[in-house]
Design a protein around this nucleic acid. Structure first.
Length: 558
RNA sequence: UGGGAGGUCGUCUAAUGGUAAGACUGCAGACUCUGGAUCUGCGUAUCGGGGUUCGAGUCCCUGCCUCCCAGCCA
């Protein structure tokens, strides 16, 4: 078993380690996690959070939380709240260092004026269509805007009037004066301010010009004294621009480093697509347990530790790959196995009667709460004549290798007795199995040295069991890469119609005290988590992940 | 066909000129009062072709393939 707390080596850590020992930035390490509050965080962000906060912690530095809130049209306070909650839940420690790019709007404005004064920026009257037309293409150079050579004074005046709200949206922009013939499209006089008469979630109507990402991001990093600005691969082309702005201004210059974003099989991880799932009502909301969002996974029952271990196991590189969903499930199970209390619950109940067990008699058997943790202790379980067992644990005609109950066969009732199937009661009209009649062997009570049988099945006492609703979740998509759609198709064509099944189950009575978010293992079935809507009178559990099931796997192969 | 970045077991990641390693998956087995967990075993993977070198996944040349970039999104 590997040690999950060991710092894993990766190329970014190598760079930081080198800078740390060489004394660059005074040996100081400061990273940042810069989400845009335009959606909920997902498992891909978890990778970035673990990386950024982990690196800061390892080198005794800090990681700031900074909201990249430069686009008032898409951003909302609800997202800010959810992001803060999700990072905390995951264990990211930002202390009181919650910042907003919008905190720096005034400074950014002043710096823009500085750029104009240095003849490195100009006000352009071209429409967005015209800008696109003059930008050129990847293979053809662009050409200069007719407004490129305005005087500093004119630019200053126009820019101030832009700020003062004298022009409608889109009428003008402030652009950096770099090189319209650059092979890097980002350097072809990129827009740095646009006019947007929109209310901002924090600055309200104070501004009607808003900085673009490229202009705001590096400068925000600089203001906060970020040493290593870690972002995803698609920003590689932006690094020259990131550097250019900093150089023009002559301010503190953080280092941008790009790494590969997480892709997961059977999953979409783009905020645009996730937003669609929410808005079209395909899922219940951002925290639907089928969503790859952090809040969805939390509601599903994933533990922060499990998610962190998964994120750490990912590694960091510049290769564009797709991680198998099974790897995520492995780390979730690994953590839950250690921590989750075991209970018995029957998802699809089938009546079982012990014909030789006295009517009305109840005895208590001792059940182990967690075989992985002796300190979790034991609990008494009521045992009686009539029980519920799992429908799939009985088969009238068993296939080869099936060890569970069938006519004439013996199995052990977990923590109870060995029983033998004597009779099957069926509906004469439909052939539906109504009841299984068995005899129990009084000499085989759990805890004694008795003979062995091939299978142990779970059960609950019919009179003692409580009804619970269980939501069985499955993958949201039926294909490994839902992003890869043929022709003019849409990723929703791969939606799994069976991603949610609700069953009315019977559970041991101890589950009555389950509080929302409590995690359990339902023995032989999987890990389950009390939903946030679960209450004493109406218990609801979400299936987090199934147990590994080698029998089911064998069946599939046939 | 411009620029940028990549190509190592099925998947993800290591190896920083010196025995190609680990995790996940898969398969086989042991153990088991969870067909869980645990344990054991199983790996012809360096994109191709040249070159440098005693020695190349690593360095050089060349070809091929993949991803990203033409928002007043981030």
């Amino acid at each position: 078993m590997h040690d999950n707390n060991l710092p894993l080596s990766n190329f970014i850590r190598d760079i930081i380690l080198k800078d740390h020992v060489s004394g660059k930035y005074g040996g100081r390490v400061r990273t940042r996690f810069p989400p845009e509050p335009n959606g909920y965080l997902h498992v891909g962000h978890a990778k970035s959070i673990v990386l950024n906060f982990g690196l800061a912690k390892e080198f005794r530095g800090e990681c700031n939380l900074r909201f990249d809130d430069t686009n008032p049209i898409k951003e909302e306070t609800e997202y800010v709240q959810s992001i803060i909650e999700d990072i905390k839940w995951l264990g990211g420690d930002f202390g009181d260092r919650i910042f907003y790019a919008s905190d720096y709007f005034s400074q950014l404005y002043l710096w823009a004026i500085e750029l104009i004064n240095k003849d490195k920026a100009y006000v352009c009257d071209l429409s967005s269509d015209q800008v696109r037309e003059t930008r050129g293409t990847p293979t053809q150079p662009g050409h200069d805007s007719p407004f490129r050579d305005r005087s500093v004074e004119e630019n200053l005046g126009l820019f101030e009037r832009m700020k003062n709200g004298e022009f409608p949206d889109g009428a003008r922009t402030l652009r950096a004066k770099i090189d319209m013939r650059s092979p890097n499209l980002n350097l072809r006089d990129p827009v740095i301010y646009r006019i947007l008469h929109a209310e901002h979630h924090r600055t309200g109507n104070q501004w009607c010009i808003y900085p673009m990402y490229d202009w705001a991001h590096g400068e925000s990093d600089s203001i906060e004294g970020i040493t290593h600005s870690i972002c995803t691969l698609e920003f590689e082309d932006h690094r020259p621009l990131y550097d250019w702005f900093l150089e023009q201004l002559g301010i503190f210059h953080p280092q941008q480093i790009e790494f590969d974003r997480l892709n997961l099989t059977y999953t979409v991880l783009s905020k645009r697509k996730l937003l669609r799932l929410v808005e079209q009502g395909i899922v219940e909301g951002w925290d639907d347990p089928r969503m790859p969002t952090i809040s969805g996974m939390r509601r599903r029952g994933y533990s922060p530790e499990g998610l962190r271990n998964f994120a750490r196991s990912l590694g960091v590189s510049k290769t564009n790959g797709i991680t198998e969903f099974e790897k995520l499930e492995y780390y979730i199970r690994e953590d839950l196995n250690k921590a989750a209390k075991r209970v018995m619950a029957v998802l699809r109940p089938l009546k079982l009667v012990l014909t030789n067990y006295p009517e009305g008699q109840v005895e208590f058997v001792e059940a182990i709460n967690n075989p992985e943790d002796a300190s979790a202790g034991t609990r008494p379980l009521p045992f009686s004549r009539e029980l519920w067992i799992e429908q799939e644990d009985f088969l009238d005609v068993p296939p080869k290798g099936y060890h569970r109950l069938y006519p004439g066969n013996e199995v052990r009732l977990r923590y109870g007795y060995i029983i033998k199937c004597q009779n099957v009661v069926k509906d004469p009209a439909t052939g539906e199995i109504l009841e299984i009649q068995c005899t129990y062997d009084p000499d085989t009570r759990s805890g004694q040295r008795t003979r062995k049988v091939k299978a142990t099945i779970h059960w609950v006492s019919a009179v003692h069991a409580i009804p619970v609703e269980v939501r069985l979740y499955d993958k949201l998509f039926t294909t490994e890469n839902p992003n890869n759609v043929p022709g003019d198709g849409d990723f929703t064509m791969y939606l799994n119609p069976k991603s949610l099944e609700v069953v009315q189950a019977r559970a041991e009575a101890s589950l009555a005290s389950a509080r929302p978010c409590d995690r359990y293992q339902f023995e032989r079935l999987g890990y389950f988590c009390a939903d946030r809507c679960s209450a004493a009178g109406r218990l609801v559990f979400n299936r987090t992940v199934e147990l590994r099931d080698t029998w089911a796997k064998l069946q599939k192969k046939i």
